[in-house]
Design a binder for these strands. Sequence first.
DNA 1: AGTACCACCTGACGGC
DNA 2: TGCCGTCAGGTGGTAC
Length: 262
Amino acid sequence: MPELPDVATFKRYIDATSLHQQISQVDVRSDKVLEGVSESDLKRAVIQLCFERTLRHGKNLFVEMEPGTWLRLHFGMTGFLQYFKRPEDEHQHSRLLFSFANGFHISYVCQRQIGRVSLIKSPDEYIERAGLGPDAVEVDLEGFKSIMAGTRGGIKSALMNQETIAGIGNIYADEILFQARINPAAGTGQLNDRLLEMLYTSVQEVLNTAIKANADPEKFPQNYIIPRREEGQECPQCGTKIQRKKINQRSAYFCPACQSRP
DNA sequence: AGTACCACCTGACGGC
DNA sequence: TGCCGTCAGGTGGTAC
């Protein structure tokens, strides 16, 4: 479930393993994950270069190879990265393999092949073209409030809409609403100023807590709903049975007792 | 500007 | 044993 905290973790992973090493080879195990770039174009563009630095916006990870040449990695629902040495350790669902001159490799793994990798000129140009909203952990309170004021409909779909605010998916939207004690079926128009501010606080707390925990639910605070995101489990705050409900075609898990607002 | 619905893709799981 | 439907997850297209 690569949402913002997961992608932030992948960013640190690349930064810690793969920068400034010359790429000697690229193997495309599945070209389904390539978007707008052919295997030969990708190879021509990146072989001999290095991953120089990374940036993240929402769920996108950008890797600079040289000025004007960036990779964009989106992880879909099942994507992640694997850095390793022995060829036999390459993951079963490895889709792209970058091999470095030092003998190590980094693989873009994506079981369901819904993730996408593309070659772009710059992160800003991509963000603009894709119409992404501000990154969820970069936006300030005033920005958040004015963005939300411009939306109608359900609060959960507003949080998950990448053109509104970038980085929140189904799972973290549930956690944010749980921590803010807001019902996932609420409409944005029902939220007064005070509730919007509490929602903003929850966005920041939840995402930053998850980033610090390397997006590992086992390291999340005791009062988080994500590790208990299953029908019939008990609310970590009050013990009520957690409910599942389809909201915007997606499963929302919530506590009907704690999340009665607005 | 919304929402609904389908498609993409793979694999786990439950029912028969 | 195996076949069927359902579900999970993010996004994009299309129709209303």
